[in-house]
Design a protein around this nucleic acid. Structure first.
Lengths: 206, 206
DNA sequence: AATTGCACCATACATTTGTATGGTGAATAA
DNA sequence: TTATTCACCATACAAATGTATGGTGCAATT
């Protein structure tokens, strides 16, 4: 049913998928501008072709009425910005080191990012190696929340606890000692608050 | 900074938030139609008021250019369609029994729904009581995937395994015997494939 | 009694948006 | 050679869209 897309049609579809991960749908004019077309008709014809081949469904007479078909809709590739150790610290890489295919549930807000967890010191909080934590850097950490923190240039996921002027980073694992950070500690920074944990399940496991 | 919204303004904001959970942003005309206004200007004035109070940000000259401010953006209320037992079957309720506040990551695709897990027979698969599984009813189950199935009018989450004409539903818990379903079994139906597990973390736990 | 804020309405207008039609040039297939 | 497909363009147009202005009625203040 779904014929092959031409290269240009694929590019346009990729653009639609990319925007979709930001909950946006472009107008024909916006697509045209992005690809350097001087005319919306060109886009219109490409969209008609893509729709004919079954990759999108258009809602006529409604602006931005482009819907991605299920298969495209279903997984979105998002970069993982780094890895954090639940136990021993690991580096956060400045460039994305990997990508995950997230279902459309993973419409991560623009001001959040993904981190992949390594280590099992958080297993008592039901966070495991391979899980993806969603981190929001714009939230103020409150006691009891999980935070991602940079400690001496390495990153950890720990439970946040502030007592007077001392910040404690607790591990769920009783065997791990809490990390105590005095105000004098310079090489310490809260990166953000863990707002969610996500684990992809659709892949065959056995 | 954020003054209080009037009742009507709050209703409009709620509508925007609701649409946002479907990755949609309405036009003024669509909002007007929804609330029964004969005129877009009314909506325009309300939106201006809401923006002035800091709850939304509008992108002028761009259609559907309404962005929710962070605080609104952050959590979205979604209905949970039911509960499934990982161990013993529980009923799936036809009406939503509860709602969760999901971060915007939880932009669940329209053809999927949420189920809340009860029981711990899936703990070896890292799915726990209180976790929310995202279920897609339009996927064909493959061996090794987790599925939600109706068995004698009750629902379970199990790992799917098809052998010849027999379907086996495995639990991760070694103590639980796999359920064997013959082709002759009438009261059995695969509801959908579990495409993800989500757990909200932002709330204070301790 | 006068003022202010709120919730609407009608009218108007410049753009934006989706759509259609017809045309050009290049590459490819019959 | 003649079609056919592909990737564009220009022009045109109705409808949708965002915006502005001015007005009405009502309730709560001042």
């Amino acid at each position: 049913m779904q014929k092959e897309l031409t290269k240009i049609q694929q590019n346009i579809l990729d653009y639609l998928i990319e925007l979709r991960s930001e909950s946006k749908t472009p107008t024909l004019a916006e697509i045209a501008k992005y690809f350097g077309y001087t005319n919306r008709s060109t886009v219109q014809q490409h969209l008609q072709a893509i729709e004919k081949k079954g990759f999108i469904k258009r809602n006529p007479k409604i602006s931005r009425g482009i819907e991605l078909t299920f298969d495209n809709n279903y997984f979105i590739t998002r970069p993982i910005l780094g890895e954090v150790a639940a136990g021993n610290p690991l580096a956060i890489y400045p460039d994305s080191i990997d990508t995950v295919e997230l279902p459309t549930i993973a419409n991560v807000p623009n001001d959040s990012f993904l981190l992949k967890v390594k280590g099992d010191s958080l297993k008592d909080a039901y966070i495991f190696t391979g899980d993806i934590v969603i981190v929001n850097p714009n939230l103020q950490a409150e006691n009891g929340q999980f935070v991602v923190a940079i400690l001496d240039n390495e990153a950890v996921v720990k439970r946040f606890q502030k007592k007077n002027n001392v910040i404690e980073l607790h591990s769920e694992n009783p065997e791990c000692e809490p990390i105590i950070i005095e105000e004098t500690h310079h090489n310490f920074k809260i990166v953000g608050v863990v707002i969610g944990v996500y684990r992809t399940m659709a892949k065959k496991v056995v």
